[in-house]
């Protein structure tokens, strides 16, 4: 079914919206959750939570890109679950490697930032991402947004794993420089 029609079902409070969403985007959401959690059972639960979150947030939202909207919900829910699991020593999955890589460019200090600072940081990151050449941007997002493994990226982009790793390393370095120059304390 067309995304516009699916969103219309949510707006009409038609419960058919959930199975239709699950049929079209269930696999995609499961991949996003699975990459972060590395646990099928937890991932399944997060995807079910995603449908509920979508039901609760459409309306008032009318997502322009439904897949990305669902992906964001899944990613946030899964990462929250990951943090809970880690506190309970149950963390595994690709997210550990992703966080290790990101740790290269941050101090690790646990700073409490205001909502305004968080928004400014998010805006700066979005600008940085927008300025990257398309393939580098896609590789970066597939790794640090979708939490795909290096092997998956290698296949998706038809590049050797070492080349993917090197490209990511360079882009991380650029992001660090970009944010530092703009006064963000990493």
């Amino acid at each position: 079914m067309d995304d516009t029609k699916i969103v219309a079902l949510y707006w009409d409070r038609n419960e058919e919206a959930i199975p239709v969403t699950a049929e079209k985007y269930g696999k995609y959401c499961l991949a996003v959750a699975g990459n972060i959690l590395g646990n099928a059972e937890d991932a399944e639960e997060c995807v079910n939570d995603t449908y509920l979150a979508a039901w609760n947030s459409i309306p008032p939202h009318r997502p322009a890109v439904l897949s990305a909207f669902l992906g964001k919900l899944t990613r946030n829910l899964s990462f929250n679950r990951y943090k809970k699991n880690t506190a309970e020593k149950r963390g595994k999955g690709e997210i550990c490697a992703v966080l290790d890589e990101l740790a290269d460019i941050v101090s690790g200090a646990d700073s409490v930032d205001s909502e305004l600072e968080r928004l400014e940081l998010a805006r700066a990151i979005d600008e940085f991402i927008g300025g990257l050449p398309k393939v580098k941007r896609d590789v970066f997002l597939c790794r640090y947004w979708y939490t795909e493994s290096i092997a998956e990226l290698s296949e998706r982009f038809a590049m050797k794993p070492s080349a993917i790793s090197m490209m990511l390393k360079r882009t991380r370095g650029k992001l660090q420089k970009y944010l530092t120059e703009r006064g963000f304390e990493l």
């Binding site: 990305a68 964001k72 946030n76 947004w145």
Partner: peptide
């Protein structure tokens, strides 16, 4: 900043790029 905080900061990246 922690790696977790940076990871969460990516949440608001434009949907166009994500798609």
């Amino acid at each position: 900043m922690t790696a977790e905080a940076l990871f969460e900061s990516f949440a608001d990246i434009s949907e166009k790029y994500l798609k």
